[in-house]
């Protein structure tokens, strides 16, 4: 470890020191859970899809830094992250387009609109009562899709930058 301030993945392909790895093993799941909390409560408290997605991504980045890229890619490979990236965007778009079918307007908040055809009016008609879990309508649903998209994108950007760095280092060594 000649240059302790810089994160050099090439020199530590098996990861960082024992202290870092032990702490990371404990902390990574808490970061992940906290990220989920920020995403799911985004419509009620400060936070939301983007912030939560970044925090969830941090847990993956922590694994990447502490244990090296092999272990990180075993959890979330680049191909899978790429697919999740597109799925997040597609899901967001689907929720927006669903507004046309349920409430007649693109991007309308169709889960909370009392208009004819919306989920709640349907449930009321059956006599079940309103669907209260999604109190903000489509906003928490959109937050989840945004979180998936942001998490995957951030992870891809970080992983690709880290890999470019490795290539540079090997060239210098040669």
């Amino acid at each position: 470890m000649n240059n302790s301030n810089q994160i050099n993945i090439a020199e530590h392909s098996e990861g960082m020191s024992l202290v870092v790895r032990t702490i990371a093993r404990w902390v990574k799941s808490f970061i992940f859970i906290f990220g989920l909390y920020i995403v799911f409560y985004g419509h009620l408290t400060p936070g939301g899809g983007f912030a939560g997605g970044v925090i969830i991504c941090c847990s993956f980045i922590l694994v990447l830094l502490a244990f090296g890229k092999e272990r990180a890619f075993k959890r979330l490979s680049l191909e899978r992250a790429g697919a999740l990236d597109s799925i997040g965007a597609l899901g967001f778009l689907l929720v927006a387009v669903a507004g046309i079918f349920f409430a007649g307007t693109f991007f309308v908040n169709w889960l909370s609109v009392p208009a004819a055809g919306s989920i709640n009016s349907l449930l009321r008609k059956i006599g079940v009562g309103e669907f209260r879990l999604l109190s903000a309508g489509t906003i928490p649903v959109n937050n989840i899709w945004i979180a998936i998209k942001v998490c995957a994108s951030m992870y891809l950007v970080f992983a690709l930058l880290a890999m470019l760095r490795i290539n540079d280092d090997t060239q210098e060594d040669l």
Partner: peptide, 21 residues
């Protein structure tokens, strides 16, 4: 009226669908 957002929605959706192939 649906035709107006259609011009943005369709290529956007197709873009993210195509990349999954």
């Amino acid at each position: 009226s649906f035709l107006i957002p259609f011009f943005v929605v369709l290529p956007l959706g197709a873009a993210f669908l195509v990349v999954l192939v």
